[in-house]
């Protein structure tokens, strides 16, 4: 890949050699492949990474195949016995039962899917939209950059929870997709800013200037030379955001404008359990706990990846 070609504007050989000798990896730092390899090497030794990766794997499997974790199908109303409402944990109901007498454990397990879908969907949308716009704005500069930057300022001024509520109120009914859309509309300026800033940094680097001097086309410059070197911050922030979006989905569903019943989400479960919370905390605390652990796992992963990618901390 041409992105791995040695930078053309490298400093004189002696300085490079000395640097390489001193740090043992100097010659590689300018190339994304080396950066990622180093980061991966570094990551694997971090307990924070291992713990978060395992947790995320469990949540992902739970979202994909919830029946692996429970034989109870919470979408089958027949499984809920009103007479069994608000029971404590038992052998039959590990997390006890909720106000409708449904099994809290099974509902919590099945709730993972919607949360993960919103989290992943919003992350992909914001990374694509904000990332691409940021790449173009940072690379091209000029009026396009000025306009896009002003637009993001406007978005930043709108409180995100209220903004999401407003957008969701346009739709007659909330679903995973409306929530994803509402969150993405409000969150893309963040990814835009991050991408734009790191593209501007990468744009000025010697190897990009050299490639431009050699007559590389704009598209090639952007995607082959700049993108691989500028994408690291976006990946870190997207990982962290994944957790944040999952928390946001829970909040919106809790408020009643997100995913609607009979769909199961952690936010809805918390909202349902709220009325009798002080007598029976279980139906609220169990989904709350899983929600927290999931968000924590993604934020931990983001922290670990950032530490591994940040050369300053090495």
């Amino acid at each position: 890949m041409s992105s791995a070609a040695p930078p053309k504007g490298a400093p004189p050989k002696t300085r490079r050699a000395r640097h390489a000798k001193a740090s043992g990896r100097g010659a590689r730092t300018a190339r994304p492949a080396g950066l990622w390899r180093d980061a991966w090497h570094d990551l694997r030794r971090r307990p924070l990474f291992t713990v978060s990766a395992v947790l995320i794997a469990v949540v992902l499997v739970m979202a994909a195949v919830p029946s692996l974790f429970t034989s109870v199908d919470p979408y089958d109303a027949a499984g809920c016995v009103l007479g069994d409402a608000r029971q404590g944990p038992s052998a039959a109901h590990w997390f006890g039962t909720d106000n409708q007498g449904c099994d809290t454990y099974a509902r919590t397990v099945y709730g993972a899917r919607n949360s993960v879908l919103v989290g992943l969907g919003t992350t992909v949308l914001t990374a694509l939209a904000g990332g691409l716009l940021g790449l173009v704005a940072g690379f091209r500069g000029g009026w396009l950059d000025a306009v896009l930057s002003r637009v993001t300022e406007v978005f930043f001024a709108i409180p995100s929870v209220l903004g999401a509520l407003l957008i969701l109120s346009i739709f007659r009914t909330g679903t995973v997709w409306t929530v994803t859309l509402a969150l993405a509309v409000l969150a893309w300026p963040m990814t835009f800013r991050i991408m734009r800033a790191s593209v501007i940094t990468a744009r000025g680097q010697d190897y990009v200037v050299a490639a431009r001097g050699l007559g590389a086309s704009a598209g090639r410059l952007m995607f082959r030379h700049i993108l691989p070197n500028a994408i690291a911050p976006l990946i870190v922030v997207s990982t962290i955001n994944l957790g944040v979006f999952i928390a946001a989905e829970a909040g919106l569903s809790f408020l009643g404008l997100g995913v609607q019943s009979p769909d199961i989400t952690w936010g809805l479960m918390i909202a349902d359990a709220r009325a009798r919370f002080h007598e029976a905390a279980g139906p609220l605390l169990f989904p709350a706990a899983l929600l927290s652990v999931t968000v924590l796992a993604f934020i931990m992963l983001g922290d670990a990846v950032r530490d591994a990618l940040d050369p300053k901390l090495r």
């Binding site: 909040g251 918390i270 919370f277 968000v295 924590l296």
Partner: peptide, 22 residues
């Protein structure tokens, strides 16, 4: 700080309400 960032308001709100209020 990692915990504070990760645990959503939704959760801290109810948990603190339960622990300190009730």
């Amino acid at each position: 700080t990692l915990l504070l960032i990760s645990v959503p308001t939704l959760v801290t709100g109810f948990v603190l309400q339960l622990l300190l209020g009730v």
